[in-house]
């Protein structure tokens, strides 16, 4: 179908263009609000700055399409193939992207506020600076798999309050991202780069963060119960008041980390490097500190009752008012 033909029909009030083959067509700047492009072949099509609000692209093929600056708010993009598509600065506010394939797509600075992204494939996608507040990417047993964000670029992305439970973010780049109050329950963040990311008040319960780089990350008041931080780098990270009950921190690097009033009960800190860590008033009841390096750590008023500390290195640590493993309170 010719473009002019299509636009005329749209002008006349027709919206149903299902199953058409429109590969490579240039729709740039057009107003196609509410258009129905279900199951269309639109690979390589151009939609730069087009108005596609509430359009329906379900099951359409949009591989390598250019949608920069396009407005796709509340559009239906279920099962849409957007591999390698360019959505730079696009508006996808409230769009339904369930099961969509966005692998390697460019979503730089895109507006993804309140989008439905369950079981979306975003592996290797560029989401730098994108805003995903209130987006839903959660895993639901027997219904939706977790979102696939492996190796995605999420630098400076705003994910505050987003639901990423069960999402796969392994090897993703989340440097400087805003993950405050986000839900990352059971998410996979293995080997992710989280340098300087903010997780204030976020939920990371049962999440996996093995070998992740959390240098200078802000995990203040984070809910990190049972999270696995094995071999993660948490140098200078802020973990004050965080709940790390039953968390796994073996071989984690926590040099100069702030752990004031953190709850580390029953946490596994074996072989962790806690030199100069600030553990004032931290709770370490029954924590496992086998061969942990606590040199020069500040344990003022911390509680180590029943913790396994026999092989921990505590030389140079500040222990004033610390409740030791045997229940005695360290003087001085």
């Amino acid at each position: 179908m010719e473009l002019s033909d299509l636009l005329l029909r749209y002008e006349a009030g027709e919206t149903n263009f299902r199953g058409e083959s429109l590969a490579g067509t240039d729709f740039s700047g057009t107003d196609l609000i509410g258009v129905d492009f279900q199951e269309c072949d639109l690979s390589g099509a151009l939609f730069v700055f087009s108005y596609l609000n509430r359009a329906n692209f379900s099951h359409a093929n949009l591989t390598k399409a250019r949608l920069c600056g396009a407005n796709l708010s509340q559009a239906d993009l279920l099962h849409t193939n957007l591999q390698d598509a360019d959505l730079h600065g696009a508006v996808l506010y409230g769009a339904d992207l369930r099961y969509a394939n966005l692998s390697l797509a460019n979503l730089l600075d895109a507006n993804l506020i309140s989008t439905d992204l369950r079981e979306v494939k975003l592996a290797g996608a560029n989401l730098q600076g994108a805003c995903l507040r209130g987006a839903n990417l959660r895993f639901e047993r027997r219904v939706y798999e977790g979102a696939d964000l492996r190796g995605a670029n999420l630098r400076n992305a705003d994910l505050r309050g987003a639901n990423l439970s069960g999402a796969d973010l392994s090897k993703a780049d989340l440097r400087g991202a805003n993950l405050q109050e986000a839900n990352l329950h059971e998410a996979n963040l293995n080997s992710a780069n989280l340098l300087g990311a903010s997780f204030r008040g976020a939920f990371l319960t049962d999440a996996r963060l093995e070998s992740a780089d959390l240098t200078s990350a802000d995990l203040f008041d984070g809910k990190l119960q049972r999270a696995d931080f094995s071999e993660a780098n948490l140098t200078q990270a802020n973990l004050s008041i965080a709940n790390l009950t039953d968390a796994k921190l073996s071989r984690a690097i926590l040099v100069r980390a702030k752990l004031k009033q953190a709850r580390l009960n029953r946490a596994d800190l074996s072989r962790a490097d806690l030199r100069w860590a600030e553990l004032e008033e931290a709770m370490l009841v029954e924590a496992y500190l086998g061969r942990a390096d606590l040199r020069f750590a500040n344990l003022t008023n911390a509680n180590l009752v029943n913790a396994e500390t026999s092989s921990a290195n505590l030389s140079g640590a500040t222990l004033s008012g610390t409740t030791m493993a045997d229940g005695s309170i360290h003087e001085g």
């Binding site: 600065g89 507006n111 805003c131 705003d158 805003n178």
Partner: peptide, 18 residues
């Protein structure tokens, strides 16, 4: 800046802004 960005995203086209 996250808040400023959110405000921009809500009220303008991000690409136009850029």
């Amino acid at each position: 800046l996250f808040d400023a960005r959110l405000d921009i995203m809500r009220n303008a086209n991000p690409l136009c802004a850029k």
